[in-house]
Structure formats: structure tokens, C-alpha cells
């Protein structure tokens, strides 16, 4: 198998497009397809899903041709993926419960760990500075409806009152 794939980046893109196209087309089948005059909700996604799957197959096949040699897929670095995306996900789920102050500190400090020259002390100062800046500009200044610190009425008042 391995020696058949001449262009791994294209090959795996082809696989990805094929899979996604098939998935979309498959689900579209559960919606009404309809007729040309009165297309159902499934018509357009079904056609597009098939087209995407077909393109995927074409890319995949082309990647097995000799004339199309290409470099291998670069190594996946899971650590930066984890340190960047995990705090975002936690922020998303935790904002309503824990508020922006706690979540903001969390995002800045935890995501900083992803950098190789991480030092705790300057990071904490950065986090505090950024949270203060965000609270003042977004919540106090722009009145975005973002909970600062649920449970502490002092902050909630601050968020609601208008100048």
C-alpha cells in the first residue's frame, strides 16, 4: 500500500473529501429530495456531497500516479494543538458558570504552557493585565453581555449599569 501512494498529502486529502462528501450525501438522503421545480431540502446537499466524494476519489487516484510525486505529510504536533484548543473549549463551556475573570486567567495561563519558553511569573502578570483590560473594555465599556463573575453581585451590577 505505502509504495502505491506517490503523493501522501494529496492522497489523504482525497480520503478526507471522499469521507466528508459521502457523509453529507448520506445524511441528505434522509431529507426530502424533491423534484427540480420544487426541490426538497435534500436535493442541493445530496448533489454537492456526491460531487465532493467524486472529487475526493479523483484526487486520491491522482496521488497514486508516478508523475505526481509529492512530499509526505508532516508530523502532527499534538502538544500545541492541545495547549491552544483545550483552554478555548473550557472557556466555551465554563463562561456561563465561572465567569470571564476566572476563564480569562485560565485561557491565558494554560495556553502559555504551549510555548517552549514558558515562564510562570510573567505569564501570570500578563493574564491579570489582559483580564483587567478585557473587563474594562468589553464589559464595562462596550456592555457586552458577558458574565464577569456570577455569584458576586458587585461585578454583575458593574456589568449591567449603563453610563
Amino acid at each position: 500500500m505505502k509504495h502505491l501512494i506517490k503523493n501522501p498529502r494529496d492522497f489523504w486529502s482525497g480520503v478526507m473529501f471522499l469521507a466528508i462528501g459521502a457523509l453529507f450525501a448520506g445524511i441528505a438522503f434522509t431529507y426530502k429530495l424533491g423534484t427540480a421545480a420544487r426541490m426538497g431540502p435534500g436535493f442541493f446537499p445530496f448533489v454537492l456531497g456526491i460531487i465532493l466524494a467524486a472529487l475526493g476519489v479523483a484526487i486520491l487516484l491522482a496521488a497514486m500516479r508516478d508523475s505526481n510525486k509529492g512530499p509526505g505529510v508532516e508530523k502532527f504536533h499534538w502538544m500545541p494543538v492541545f495547549w491552544v484548543l483545550m483552554p478555548i473549549v473550557v472557556f466555551g463551556f465554563g463562561l456561563k458558570v465561572a465567569g470571564m475573570i476566572v476563564m480569562g486567567l485560565f485561557v491565558v495561563i494554560v495556553s502559555s504552557i504551549g510555548s517552549e519558553d514558558f515562564k510562570l511569573k510573567p505569564t501570570i502578570w500578563l493574564a491579570i493585565g489582559l483580564v483587567i483590560f478585557c473587563s474594562l473594555s468589553f464589559v464595562a465599556g462596550l456592555k457586552l453581555p458577558i458574565p464577569l463573575c456570577p455569584g458576586l453581585d458587585f461585578f454583575e451590577q458593574f456589568a449591567l449599569c449603563r453610563v
Binding site: 478555548i88 466555551g92 485561557v107 491565558v108 495556553s111 510555548s115 505569564t123 500578563l126 478585557c134 458577558i146
Partner: peptide, 14 residues
């Protein structure tokens, strides 16, 4: 980048 991340989080949420 941590600064960009926190701005993005707040921005996307809002």
C-alpha cells in the same frame, strides 16, 4: 498569542 486567544474567545462568544 495568549492575548490573541483571549480576544478571540470573547469576540466569538459575543
Amino acid at each position: 498569542y495568549p492575548a490573541i486567544l483571549i480576544f478571540c474567545c470573547i469576540g466569538v462568544y459575543s
